[in-house]
Design a protein around this nucleic acid. Structure first.
Ligand code: FES
Ligand code: FES
Lengths: 145, 145
DNA sequence: ACTATTCCTATTGTATTAGTATGAATATAT
DNA sequence: ATATATTCATACTAATACAATAGGAATAGT
C-alpha cells in the first residue's frame, strides 16, 4: 500500500508551480533541475495533469506551465487521483472481480478504507501545503541563523 | 495505492478462522479449497500471521490453525500490517530517504494519510466483519427463498 | 512404520512501475 | 525565413515488487 512515485513527483511538481503562482509560466526543465527529477519522466506526469485540467501548458519558445486554478482550489486528492487509482481494491467499483460480493464482508472494509483515503487527501489544498512549507522554512532559517 | 493480494488473502484466511472460532483447528488445505486460493501461497501468509501472534499452529497429523485471540480482539489493522507496510511512503518513518524533510510539506500529507489508513483499519475487528457477513447472508438467503 | 499436516528455503514467473529515446509540432525572436 | 527553445506524442527498455510454485524437512497423531 504505497503511493507511487508518479503521484509523489506529481505533487512536488504541482507544489513547484503553486509556489510561483501568479509569476507566469515555468519551464519543465527548471522544475526538473530544482527538484532533481528526470525531465523526461516529469514530462509524462505533467501531461496527465494537463489532461486532467490541473495545469495549463504553452508550447514553443518561452512556453511552459502554469497552475490552472489558484492553489486553494486544487486539492492533493485532485492531483493524486489523476496519477493513480486511489481506491485500494478493485472489487468496490467492479463487484464482478470477486465472486459473491453480496456475501463478502471484506468488501465493506475496503470501501471504508477508500473513503478514508479520499476524504483525507481531498481536504488538503496546495495552499495548505504552501502555508506549511513557509512556516517550516521560517523555523529552518531561524534555527540556522 | 493498492492493498496487496497478500493482505487481501490474509484477511479472508483470518475470516475463515474467525467464522469457526471455538470449533477447533482448521487445515490450511480446507481453507484454501473453500476460498479457492492456492494452498502453497496461503502457507506463506499464514506463517507470517503466526509469527505475528495472530494465529496458533499445530503440526503433525490432525494439526491445523486456530485464531490466537477472540475475533473481537483482532483488528483488520493487525492483519494487514503484518502482511504489508501500511505507511504509504517511506520518508515519514525514515526521514533520510528524501533530503531536507524539514522543508518538505508533502511529508505532512503522507503522515496524515498514513494515520487515516491505520485509524480506519484499526477500528474494525474481525467480530465486526462477522456481524456484517452474517447480516448479508441473512438478506441473501431471504432474497433467494 | 505410515500418513497427514505444518514448516522452511529457494526459485520462477508475471505484472506494474519507472525511466529513456527519438522525433514531430509549435511558438517566439532575430 | 531561419534558428531556437519549448511542449507533445509514441515507442521502447529497465528495474522492481509482487504473486505463485517446487521440493523436501520436521512433527505429531494412528
Ligand atoms: S468482494 Fe472483493 S474482497 Fe470480497
Ligand atoms: S520528505 Fe518525503 S516527500 Fe518530502
Amino acid at each position: 500500500m504505497k503511493v507511487s512515485t508518479k503521484a509523489r513527483y506529481g505533487l512536488r511538481l504541482m507544489m513547484a508551480l503553486a509556489n510561483r503562482y501568479g509569476q507566469g509560466t515555468a519551464f519543465l526543465k527548471d522544475i526538473a533541475r530544482d527538484q532533481e527529477l528526470s525531465e523526461k519522466y516529469l514530462s509524462h506526469i505533467v501531461m496527465e495533469l494537463r489532461a486532467a485540467g490541473l495545469v495549463n501548458a504553452f508550447r514553443g519558445s518561452n512556453g511552459g506551465y502554469v497552475l490552472a486554478r489558484e492553489p486553494y482550489a486544487i486539492t492533493v486528492g485532485d492531483v493524486v487521483k489523476t496519477l493513480e487509482d486511489m481506491m485500494p481494491v478493485n472489487c468496490v467499483r467492479e463487484p464482478a472481480v470477486c465472486g459473491r460480493v453480496e456475501l463478502c464482508s471484506a468488501n465493506e472494509v475496503w470501501r471504508r478504507l477508500g473513503e478514508a483515503i479520499s476524504t483525507t487527501l481531498n481536504q488538503i489544498t496546495l495552499a495548505d501545503m504552501l502555508a506549511w512549507s513557509r512556516q517550516k522554512n521560517e523555523n529552518y532559517v531561524m534555527y540556522y541563523l
